[in-house]
Write a protein that binds this DNA or RNA. Structure first.
Length: 120
RNA sequence: AGAGUUGACCGAACAGUCGCUGUUUUAUCGAAAGAUAAAAGGGAGGAAAGUCCGGGCUCCACAGGGUAAAGUGCCAGGUAAUGCCUGGGAGGCGUGAGCCUACGGAAAGUGCCACAGAAAAUAUACCGCCGUAAAAGUUCGCUUUCGCGGUAAGGGUGAAAUGGUGCGGUAAGAGCGCACCGCGCAACGGGUAACCGUUGUGGCAGGGAAAACCCCACUUGGAGCAAGAUCAAAUAGGGAAACACAAUGCGUGACCCGCGCUGUUUCCGGGUAGAUUGCUUGAGCCGUCGGGUGACUUACGGCCUAGAUGAAUGACUGUUUUAAACAAAACCCGGCUUACAGGUCGACUCUUUCU
RNA sequence: UGGGUUGUCGCCAAGCGGUAAGGCACGGGGUUUUGAUCCCCGCAUACCAAGGUUCGAAUCCUUGCAACCCAG
């Protein structure tokens, strides 16, 4: 966390299947009817974000992209309050019908909760 | 003014802040590969969709031929190619502009047409109609019954019944004859052709269905960028190329004929995870002048217009006819089909009114 | 992204152009002291959708919509 800006370079993303597998193995969970977030502590000095928006759950490509953007934006603006965590965001079916404002609040809440739980 | 027909186009715009992703330039670090920073400039569609067709590209197979299978189906042209497009013909719909059509062959063959009906395709004879032998009855006109023969006008069935209408003709009838229409054949004329017109002639024979099998003509090798290529930890063992070639057996990507293998010589790596590449300059776009009825196209000039890889276009604020539809590239093109708020322009038709 | 398969009552399913079997479930009745079993009756409700071919389509053709499988 050397930078003080809100950028979102490739280092802050999960990039390999192995990294995803690691998160899915023994995660700390936080979920509601819109999203399920999984997290695990990593060995780096910054958080990383992964997205798993299933085609089976969200049918249309436009909706999938919209949800991904929401999740990235939320992560980007919150990254300084997050510790060294690998986070994966899973979408659920109800996220399709919810408004962007509700989804954003949901994501913020989950991120804060994950930080609290991983610390404890 | 109203109601339509048709061709083409747009697909919220602008400004600011914070972010994402390629490209170029500069600077710093570095032996290099490259990394970081700054600036400039680029960054989803008309359908990017469905994957219904056609190609490019790549690998496999491949002398070539035959069979099968699949597709297409009026004619001509366009095109890289097509099941697409254009023009023409024929049939149908609409007052019209215009629109629609899987539109070859049913006398090459096989099969099918339930129920009903006499008969569903070699026509047949149930009720009728007509003639007539015999018998019975008789008011001597004829009637009835049962046979035989003729007939396809009428009846009823059915989705569909073996040319239609009229006149003649006949015992009753019948293309039996005639006229018109329809159909077939031939000649001539027009047209590249599909086809059209005119004349003559036959004398009516064989309904439907080929999106039943099929016949005829034409087309098609198989798989797909997760194709494939390069570098290359691990692991297992040989692998590759060239030349020659008889039999058996084996293999062979629809099948068969066919084809390949074994022997000799030469060379040395192999290929999983992963990385790089394929990856965007292309049957490209725009314009002008010619050619063509048109689809399209010759020549010339100009332009570079996404290339990601857990996968980029977003968020916030402000203004404007206001809360902006359908919808997201993943190798690339040409079509088709389907979805779509709202809007712009051109051409044409009909109705009403006015001049 | 590419390749392929399938859609028939609430569920499982048969159906080879001629008016949609069967089983389970469900409802009613009978048998039984009661229940199960068994028997009888019913189930107004089903061919994924829209066009086309045909006299007639669940079946043939075209287009679309869903669901599922495979490669990775």
């Amino acid at each position: 966390m050397s930078k003080s800006d809100f950028s979102f370079p490739p280092q802050l993303r999960l990039r390999t299947p192995a990294a995803y597998k690691n998160v899915f193995a023994q995660p700390v969970k936080s979920s509601d009817k819109y999203f399920t977030l999984l997290a695990i502590r990593n060995q780096l000095d910054h958080p990383r974000l992964g997205l798993a928006i299933a085609k089976k759950v969200i049918k249309r490509a436009v909706d999938r992209n919209t949800l991904k953007r929401l999740a990235r934006e939320s992560f980007r603006l919150r990254q300084h309050s997050l510790t060294a965590l690998d986070i994966v965001v899973l979408a659920r079916r109800d996220a399709l019908t919810a408004s962007p404002e509700v989804l954003r609040q949901s994501l913020e809440k989950h991120l804060l909760q994950l930080v609290k739980r991983c610390d404890s």
